[in-house]
Design a protein around this nucleic acid. Structure first.
Lengths: 212, 212
DNA sequence: GTCTATATTAAGATAGAC
DNA sequence: GTCTATCTTAATATAGAC
């Protein structure tokens, strides 16, 4: 693997585990057993590494979030879809953990991340409307808009909150709790024939807790 | 006002507006027109300032959160109570904006803040149970626990999320949106006679938006 | 209590040899 | 492409005069 690529992967790994603020360019170089000078040959600095990591986060997330806008997802896939989003977020958790700080330091990233949040909401709204059309959910336009906002918020901050609840939740459990949390938001609006979605999700959740 | 107190107030103000990471001891001293040396006479450093600011945050929040545990609050006060909590959070928003970072740097604060989150959940649960007992809400124990978790999350991260939605929401509007967001969580479980709580909150929200 | 001046440290960054 | 050595900068912190 090329050094440039290794720098990006190592940085992502260290940022996720130690927190972006606690990782210096020298730390990254040490972790890789290369010299700081070498790192600076490949990147102008930490700034540029973060910029490139964000580029990837952004393009991946756009791909994921635009899919249901272009081609409506099947009803039974709606909650599976949440896993995909959460997993991507989890891979870049360092970013979500330090949002305010990073957005304050990088105005360019700030604009782009705000667009991502707006896209999250738009997608959540589209999916919810789809479910309403198929009579899986029963809610009016205002409730849909409320739900979409809330889903976006849960996606963005759930892993942070989970971290406050217990320090070292294994990733799969944390993600599943997040999904369950979101499904619970929609539960009161599920039509009787689709209650089983909530029950399925709920029992899967129980099993996961029992296993871990 | 004593210098020590002015340092604390100025720090809080600067942290809230600029972000804790972007404010140095020299910045604080400059803002107050005192010398850095003077600041260090009163505090061992930024660390100690943050420690003292957290002490206050903690004791205020405990006072607020323990009140409903000791003496049950009146049904119609339940959602007003949310404003009190949000306002306190808003006053210390720098802390909530940089939670991960601060908790990573100050293990002592981490432990204590985790206890505060647990207390938030306990209080939310107690209030919810109270409302269930008075037949304001209709939900089972599991739903109560889900709601309490969600309320705690909204309280903790709503202002952060609001900040992603639009950069400069005036505080009162942001807080009201947060309250509305939380009331909406409980709305599906409101008994018919108490629907009006949601409607009141909802129309107040519309008015606020129209005014601003 | 407050100031000025200065020391310390750690992160960020570059130059130049190999 | 990579290394070593070194420079710059900003934040933190202290000493000693007033």
């Amino acid at each position: 693997m090329k050094t440039r690529e290794r720098i990006l992967l190592t940085s992502l790994e260290l940022f996720n585990t130690e927190g972006e603020a606690n990782v210096s360019t020298v730390d990254i170089a040490n972790e890789m057993d290369i010299s700081p000078g070498n790192l600076y040959y490949h990147f102008k600095g930490k700034q540029e590494i973060i910029g490139e990591l964000f580029n990837r986060l952004e393009s991946q997330l756009i791909d994921i979030l635009e899919a249901p806008l272009e081609k409506s997802i099947k009803t039974e896939d709606a909650w599976i879809y949440l896993y995909v989003v959460f997993e991507q977020i989890c891979n870049h958790r360092y970013f979500y953990r330090s949002i305010s700080d990073l957005l304050q330091r990088y105005p360019d990233i700030e604009k782009r991340f705000r667009r991502l949040v707006a896209l999250k909401i738009r997608t959540a709204e589209a999916v919810a409307r789809e479910l309403v059309d198929h009579e899986v959910l029963k809610m009016d336009a205002r409730q849909v808009s409320w739900l979409a906002n809330n889903v976006a918020m849960q996606l963005t901050f759930w892993l942070n909150f989970d971290n406050l609840l217990s320090k070292n939740t294994p990733d799969p459990l944390a993600i599943h709790q997040g999904v369950f949390q979101i499904v619970s938001l929609a539960a009161p609006y599920l039509s009787p024939q689709h209650r089983y979605v909530y029950d399925e999700c709920s029992s899967l959740y129980e099993h996961l807790i029992a296993d871990l």
